[in-house]
Nucleic acid binder design. Structure first.
Lengths: 246, 246
DNA sequence: CGAGAAGTTGAAGCGTGTCAAATGCAGTGG
DNA sequence: CCACTGCATTTGACACGCTTCAACTTCTCG
């Protein structure tokens, strides 16, 4: 049973046995647990470690003074939070949990060790941050141009694909702990309108969503509705020239 | 007269004479010119070099199949386009010019040279990509939560500050080559509504914008309208621990 | 001087937000 | 086991910010 980070990085490049071992060690060394709906780190604080999500869902969010809140990214198991840690003085956003979350803290020294002795992993981590940025751009497009139903359909498609890659979806079904309020904060819509839009998608027999479980009944059709094209997730083994030969 | 990249990086860390020299050389080595409203690279193409904007304005944009277009980032002189170049196989967006633009192409080898022999510059470039990502997050917030006048006020504040840092603004005034259509694509609004919103800002005596020139009459007030807080631009010499001692 | 691009204006419609209340659901303690 | 509590979801009515369409004006530049 692969840990989700290893699984994800292998979308980019084939790792060696030694690579997998060190990743496994990273994921079991300094582990912390967070309750649902708590902050891992807050805007303005100084970041210390890089956070690797081992289990649970979390999000990056920003808030305006008057309370309006935007979720700017969602973190799933296998996602890495902040490779920026060692350069920036202040967090310009917060990271909070959605569910209970277990996190592995990766120290600066550990990452330095990776960089010098495990260049294949270093490259793969670099890829993962580039994908994160690409997702951020796609979200910008999502908020700027798509209608409500397109936005939600798109987000559901993205999350489903990412969960598949992490090994957390089977046969069109996955856990889905986001509330409608979370979806509203992530899509820039009101709670009420998210509710109505979900009802539309259900009425069109595209999804079933209840009891924190999402089933996608017709992925292709949902992707059409959301104008979803997975290319921006860069999952096609784009790093194969760095493959380990094992 | 400093080139805009050096000027920008010095917001983060004090560079040495040798640092400045090599940056100056990078900015004069392989230089290309692009006409206004042309593409530097298109979605789907394979990226080759890193692009450093020497003069002019450009943008990153994404398009949906039906033609809807979102500008997801604006590039000003001193901005670096794609440090991702060497890892990703395909561009997931396009880069196009707004004005005429001169670009310096930085080769993979040159950047490798920087990384090994000029670690201070390498760190500063790393910082600049982190700021770029931070801006992307702020744009996500902008599109998701702010109203039309807030969005436009915020964008104007951001661009003005970035131009100041690049040495391209004096006394509350700067060149501003964006058309209202460009502003619409960047803010996710319609052209017509951008027009009316600009009229509001003018009526409130916050800006003058005509003949491709922007004057900000009351920056503080404009920042209030746009809920603008420059912290996300990370301009406070956050890398001073890496300063050259000269 | 002419032509196309950019900016401006008005009127009408619609997608989404807001407000308020009701319903459903899960966990807690008596 | 049930009443109680609080959160998540659902529903309806209404308001409004923004879009759309279409025409007109003003700039820009060859």
């Amino acid at each position: 049973m692969l840990d989700p980070l290893t699984r994800k990085l292998e979308q980019f490049v084939r790792l060696s046995v030694a690579d997998r071992q060190i990743l496994g060690r990273a994921a079991s060394h300094r582990v912390r647990k967070f309750a649902p709906r708590t902050d891992i780190i807050r805007e303005g604080e100084q970041p210390r470690d890089v956070h690797l999500i081992l289990s649970g869902w979390a999000c990056r969010y920003k808030q305006l003074e008057d309370g309006r809140r935007q979720v700017v990214a969602l973190f799933l198991p296998g996602d890495v939070c902040d490779l920026n840690v060692f350069i920036l003085k202040q967090m310009d956003h917060s990271i909070g949990t959605i569910t209970g979350v277990t996190v592995a803290d990766l120290s600066r020294e550990f990452l330095e060790h990776i960089r010098t002795d495990f260049p294949r992993i270093a490259t793969a981590l670099w890829w993962e941050t580039l994908v994160t940025v690409s997702i951020q751009r796609e979200w910008t497009l999502n908020l700027g141009q798509r209608t409500a139903s397109e936005r939600i359909a798109h987000l559901l498609c993205e999350l489903f694909v990412r969960l598949q890659v992490a090994g957390l979806a089977q046969a069109g079904t996955c856990e889905f702990p986001l509330t409608q309020a979370d979806l509203a904060d992530a899509t820039g819509l009101s709670k009420v309108h998210v509710n109505r839009t979900l009802q539309e998608l259900r009425a069109e027999k595209l999804i079933i969503l209840r009891e924190r479980t999402l089933s996608i009944l017709d992925f292709e059709q949902l992707a059409n509705v959301g104008l979803f094209n997975a290319q921006y997730l860069h999952l096609e083994n784009e790093g194969h020239q760095f493959n380990a030969n094992e």
